[in-house]
Amino acid sequence: MKLIASIILTIALSLGTLAAATAYTVSLGTPDEQLVGKTLKFGAGATADDEPIIDPGTVLTEGDLVTLREAGVKHVHVKEFRFGLWRHSWVFGLSMVGLVGGAMMLRVDAKRRLLAADNDPHGTSLSPNAAIAQARAAIDELRADLPAMPTDQDRLEAILAKLDDVQRVQIAAFIGAREKLVGRFGLAGYARVMDRFAASERQVNRAWSAAADHELYESMVCLDRASELFADVEPLLKH
């Protein structure tokens, strides 16, 4: 359904832009009384030297129209928009119907996918709950291991290595689970979850930066905060 919806949207958008681009293009088949008095935006017709037959800015008269028709000119481009003169308005209307239809189909498909993703216990990627739990566990394990390390340099290297893994695996998996989370909690609920998660991710990032700058104390304080904030995220993920 997504493919069909995308095709419909593409065709509708293409037709819509085509029709919109001709909003100021008027056919010379239109009755004179509707054309006389209109101002040319661009020159009309072309002579053998590629100059316009009637210059831009000219206010059209009946004589101008006769001249242009005799030269075989089919359209003119005017400054004034009139809905009645817009020949392709029906195409634009059709495109609007297509856009609405395609959009509705996409929404239905998206809802279906969200439900399916959330209900799939065998999803290939780490679930959001597991990602948060693992991230917190990894940080707590690191905090517990740090005292046993022989030097501060060893601690700093361990922090960098462990946080690299957490950022690359658990945090990336949680961020990638947007569809699941939106499906589960709705947009407002997703916003609340991400707000808490972002605070914990920022502490992880800050701990990493501090370790890279050999600021062990700051790094460990940030690890403590990150663990607490991840703990705040977990209850939000329960149904």
Binding site: A5, L9, L13, G16, T17, A19, A20, A21, A23, Y24, T39, K41, G57, K79, F81, F92, S95, M96, L99, V100, G102, A103, M104, L106, R107, D109, A110
Partner: peptide, 24 residues
């Protein structure tokens, strides 16, 4: 100042943009 602005094209584009955003 010369009345050259294609206001309707901006408007039609806006309508298309609004409708495009109705999807997911």
């Amino acid at each position: 100042q010369g009345g050259d602005m294609p206001y309707m094209m901006y408007g039609l584009g806006t309508l298309l943009g609004l409708l495009l955003g109705l999807g997911s």
